[in-house]
Write a protein that binds this DNA or RNA. Structure first.
Lengths: 266, 266
DNA sequence: TGCTGGACTTAATCCAGATCAATATATACA
DNA sequence: TGTATATATTGATCTGGATTAAGTCCAGCA
């Protein structure tokens, strides 16, 4: 609505950019003392489908470290695999580095999502993962998670489901990358973000991108320039409103239509 | 099996194109009575890391159905998820269909590999999967696998590893699709097949492709024409010898070099 | 307060791979 | 066994997005 609120006082409000925290939260979103039982993400994260005492057992193995600053690494490619991580606040990106130093982003992670499962099989993380903004994490040592899963069938079941979900998502991305145009990929990316923000009770139509255009391009297999151009084009079509990192989706169905049009041609 | 029944007017006489069977195997590779304990794929499949009695318990929940003919479906997109499947012989492809009927291949599966994990989370398969040639399968009802995993920590651990491996592989494909050229993708695809054939004791340098050029193109995000042209180009460079479905890799390091060259530019 | 370097945008040109088209070869099937 | 239908190859042309280039707009900070 008021698109000019930033122009009134541009010098002071730094804390205001923490957009991942729904208004009304009593505690700082990066607070590291919140328990699984009281965590507002428990419905998305591992505790779902566990009963009170089971949640307590999970809570006992979770390690809540100090918050991460923008750019801090959770782990680096080839580090020994030790834990999976649940995002509590903020956001992360995973990327692999080719020999020339050019990276390719393999994933973005928002609150309630699980990071690090790519290391389970080989016992080494396959990518590097760093915070895109101030962020906090629940670290779950994997050997303890396995032990607990063995005791709690519900937890085993749920972790199988979490991994299965990751596999299903990755296959969708495969299809996206192998057959969608730049515009379709970008529209799909925005819609995906939108529903992930909605999951954590944030607006599905107005949000701040935690990542750069370059990150998006690397993730979608496009260049920065193309991402930028597509944003402009989508804006001209009246589907979105883009203002630097600030995104407003003005016509969700229109965006869906862009993806659908891929399949519309006889 | 071969003892012919009284009814001979059924059209039955086809079973010769089986290339995946190492010479000297005493039993037909599609034999559906082989137990996990005696299966020559046990070192790749679920039984690995289980002891004798554990393997027996796994064996008890495995269902060995009749072999699949080329084109037969294991399951179709949106079917209710019930089982994961281990390929015993032959090969399969998974694909999703866009509304216009054009498919995109999401994966190929060789002996010892596990199919169907994309359905675990949503309880519905996310793709359709069909045999690329005469093939046989071990069906493992997932609810029983979960129950057994709960009793056997080794099995739980191993299935977590199998799923983690799938996730790691999918992320490599993500990188492949988002940043490799057509030639790099194709070289990488051939090398990948090569090591998967090696895993099942087949030649890593001479093999038959079970899939069409079109399947390969859909998987790699390329057109048939491009795949065909790249094959010709690789042959001209002396890296491979292509004869219809018959492939010989003549210079593995050369092929690796093609992929490496992606990263060589300063 | 002005400097510096990263992030973003826009435009001009180029090229890898798509598309279109024609033909050749293999495989299935009557 | 021959014919129909998938599969594969090859060439000519087109085009979406990369590349190159030249900026603008910031936020961080000495």
């Amino acid at each position: 609505m008021k698109s000019s609120d930033a122009s009134e006082d541009k010098s002071s409000p730094k804390a205001a950019i923490v957009i991942q925290s729904p208004a009304g939260d009593k505690v700082c979103p990066h607070n590291n003392r919140v328990s699984c039982a009281s965590c507002r993400l428990s419905e998305l994260c591992l505790p779902i489908a566990l009963n009170k005492s089971e949640i307590q057992q999970l809570d006992d193995i979770v390690e809540r470290n100090r918050p991460y600053k923008k750019g801090d690494h959770l782990y680096r490619q080839n580090d020994g695999f030790k834990s999976v991580y649940a995002v509590r606040s903020g956001s992360f990106k995973s990327y692999v580095l080719s020999d020339n130093g050019q990276g390719r982003v393999t994933g973005f992670y928002l609150p309630g999502e699980i990071i690090g499962m790519d290391g389970i099989a080989s016992k080494h993380y396959q990518n590097s993962t760093q915070a895109l903004e101030h962020a906090s994490i629940c670290e779950i040592p994997f050997s303890q998670l396995e032990r607990l899963s063995h005791q709690l069938p519900n937890l085993q079941h749920h972790f199988f489901a979490i991994m299965g979900n990751e596999i299903a998502k990755d296959q969708q991305v495969h299809t996206l990358l192998s057959s969608y145009t730049a515009e379709e990929r970008t529209a799909s990316f925005l819609l995906g973000l939108s529903s992930r923000f909605a999951r954590v009770s944030l607006s599905p139509t107005r949000f701040l991108l935690p990542m750069t255009r370059s990150d998006i391009g690397e993730y979608l297999g496009l260049t920065v320039e193309t991402v930028s151009r597509i944003f402009t084009a989508l804006q001209r079509k009246g589907l979105v409103d883009v203002n630097n990192r600030e995104i407003e989706l003005k016509d969700i169905d229109g965006l869906r239509g862009i993806i659908g049009s891929n399949q519309a041609k006889s």
